[in-house]
């Protein structure tokens, strides 16, 4: 059956990715599959079944004519020869995915190290060794930045994917899609956990504030929780975007590209009144974060400043509603 799929894939290579062509391809595959299954049931060997199916398939030119695709087929062939697409094999794709995981790890680690670097001075301040803390902070930042730079090199072997048009065949696209779908569960857990960690990061502050323990400890915990949360989010998103990148290789001029188009993710795009409103909403959380960090570091009242997040959370709803376009449901 894989041979038949491969054959059909080859026949449709270079066809434009229109609904008509997609339909023709799936209908033809269905007919071939039916015929193949029946031949096998009748006791034919796999080779002879494949042979019969392919010999009785016919000629796509006939179809192109009937579907009014003659012009498009020629155009697609023209494009094809202008910029030959580099074919990425299944093995290469597997390599890419392994590589992507490595990249994701270093990227997430880098960001996390930068975030938790600020805990060093706060922590050592508790023990009255603030200077040492500043030094330690730079060690963290250094390690983080190093990790970020390294992750830039990790996928240097794959630069060609950005610079030249590439494509993957249907089987490979299927493999990637399945891998992406099975990763989706892991990703959901990572994102949820990460988001929860970021949201509840100020909870330890309240507890510490309540029991009147050292307030600085609350600050340390905030950054630790946010650091871990961000790590989970960045790590899983980077891997997931790797899968999408592979599936997006095939665009309208290749056939397997349907994999991304056919299962569009529901995107909830909010419409804003105007550019200014959009900017306000986009800058809202970064501004709140800055405000929180500035106030906290200036006052060192970690036990109180977390209230900013509660106020900001409530205010956010009001800001978004005010900035939304009236016709947005």
């Amino acid at each position: 059956m894989e041979t038949i799929k491969g054959y059909l894939e080859a026949m449709f290579a270079g066809m434009p990715n229109t609904p008509e062509v997609r339909k023709a391809k799936s209908e033809l595959l269905q007919m071939m599959e039916d015929k193949y299954n029946e031949l096998i049931e009748e006791g034919a060997s796999e080779n002879s079944a494949v042979g019969t199916v392919i010999s009785e398939f016919g000629n796509l030119d006939e179809l192109a004519d009937d579907l009014g695709l003659k012009k498009e087929v020629e155009e697609a062939h023209g494009k094809e020869s202008e910029t030959p697409r580099r074919h990425i094999t299944l093995d290469e794709v597997k390599d890419f995915i392994i590589n992507r995981r490595k990249k994701a790890l270093f990227l997430a680690l880098g960001v996390m190290l930068c975030i938790i670097s600020v805990t060093a001075p706060i922590m050592l301040d508790i023990f009255g060794a603030g200077d040492l803390g500043a030094a330690l902070m730079f060690v963290f930042v250094g390690a983080g930045v190093g990790s970020l730079i390294y992750c830039g090199f990790v996928d240097s072997n794959w630069k060609f994917m950005k610079n030249s048009p590439c494509q993957i065949d249907m089987n490979t696209a299927k493999y990637v899609e399945e891998a992406r779908n099975s990763f989706e569960a892991v990703r959901a857990i990572c994102i949820t956990l990460g988001t929860v960690l970021c949201v509840i990061c100020w909870v330890p502050c309240i507890i510490i504030d309540y029991y009147k323990v050292n307030e600085n400890l609350g600050g340390v915990l905030i950054f630790l929780l946010v650091g871990i949360g961000v790590f989970l989010i960045v790590y899983s998103n980077t891997i997931a975007s790797g899968y999408d990148k592979l599936l997006e290789l095939n665009d309208k001029t290749t056939f397997s590209g349907t994999y991304v188009d056919s299962s569009p993710k529901p995107v909830n795009v909010i419409k804003y009144k105007n550019k200014t409103a959009e900017t306000i909403v986009a800058l809202y959380w970064p501004t709140v974060t800055c405000l929180y960090l500035i106030l906290s570091f200036l006052t060192f009242q970690w036990g109180i400043t977390w209230i900013i997040w509660v106020i900001a959370g409530v205010a956010h709803k009001a800001v978004v509603i005010n900035c939304q376009a009236d016709d947005y449901e």
């Binding site: 209908e27 007919m31 039916d34 016919g58 006939e62």
Partner: peptide
Amino acid sequence: SYGYQISKEIKTISDEKYVIKETTLYS
């Protein structure tokens, strides 16, 4: 009826003298 069933019928009714190609049938 559907694609393959129709092509099978054509083959049977014509005493296997005519096998319609998939592309012909779909077009």
